[in-house]
Design a protein around this nucleic acid. Structure first.
Lengths: 187, 187
DNA sequence: CGCCGAGTTGAACTGAATCAAGAAACGTGG
DNA sequence: CCACGTTTCTTGATTCAGTTCAACTCGGCG
């Protein structure tokens, strides 16, 4: 929990009251490897902070699993589309490792927004960061080659190779597992 | 200006005071076709609301112009990365038609955030919408074929064909102009 | 020991890029 | 209002990155 607070106060300072309110509203969750945090068709009611562990978001396309994001330590994770719109999710969120998470429901978060301007500000700033990250990934996906994307990934999250099966990484990069294997064999 | 207010109060309701404050802080701008709103290397200080007209964001890669977004009526436009971080922009924003815009500076917006919780909320909600939009585009870019992406675009913004040169659209879709031409010849 | 999932390797195929040339549309000045 | 150059769009031939399908290797585990 301390990790969560220090992480978010990096985004913006928070008064003691607001910190306490947050502390009371997040609920600790521990889940085992391979379990699901969310399956398609459900409405995603929670925003999660990942304290320890790893997970992936994926959806099914023509009978194939498409992994389109990973979550690691200190990431906020949720099915953004479903969480924001409260519509049924098209994606699944699955644990890649046993993990410790902190969860807050959409309703609770909305109440906190009403009570504390500074918490809503925090969220606004978090969205800014996440928007920029996504924009970068988008540009990479559309305008870089498979090898460039792989090298990029290695620089940004070198540890990912040891923690995530190659098939998922290939899917994340938008290439087939065979192609990733060939890219790797050429260093 | 009325258009701007009705558009944003669709996102979230605003008190009269907040609406007045906003009205006083946006500045009207009219610019001619082909002119630039921003060129790479500059810091983007403004968030714009596009009342009438069209524009594109593009950057240079290996001597080629890559158009990666368009703005039309009722869009908020800016170089998000540069506006958020206040670092030098990598992209250019150019007018595709003579346009009417409303501009607000980052400093002024920040002041409004401090004064009006509800305006910061509005921005938080705007980011949510824009995040979802970008996420959708990302998934399309990575996992759909060129023709599917073109058909998608036609459904979402059918008018785009008459207003934007095909070369820019091809670039936006992440394909070459020749390929787009061939896709079109097959309806 | 033999199975199973994860990763690698090979060969044939394909969607889209590139290079090159031509056709159509557009705008500006005489 | 036409003539000319420029920009925009199309068409064809070739090339290439990455997919697909299929077989094979390797390490772990019941």
């Amino acid at each position: 929990m301390q990790q969560l607070l220090t992480h978010i106060t990096n985004y913006a300072p928070l008064s003691n009251e607001a910190q306490h309110a947050l502390q009371n509203c997040f609920e600790k969750i521990t889940i085992a490897k391979h379990e699901f945090l969310l399956t398609q068709g459900q409405v995603c009611r929670y925003l999660y902070f990942l304290e320890k562990g790893a997970l992936r978001g994926f959806y099914n396309l023509d009978g194939k699993e498409i992994t389109h994001w990973f979550g690691f330590e200190k990431d906020f994770v949720t099915s953004f589309h479903s969480f924001i719109t409260q519509e049924a999710a098209v994606e699944n969120i699955q644990l890649l490792e046993g993990s410790i998470l902190w969860a807050i429901s959409k309703e609770t978060l909305t109440q906190l927004f009403n009570q504390y301007h500074e918490i809503e500000r925090l969220m606004r700033i978090a969205y800014e960061k996440y928007y920029i990250r996504l924009e970068e990934r988008f540009v990479n996906a559309q305008f870089k080659t498979a090898s460039e994307r792989y090298e990029n990934l290695l620089q940004q999250t070198p540890h990912i190779i040891e923690r995530v099966p190659l098939g998922y990484i290939a899917s994340y990069l938008g290439i087939s597992q065979e192609t990733l294997s060939r890219i790797r064999s050429k260093f």
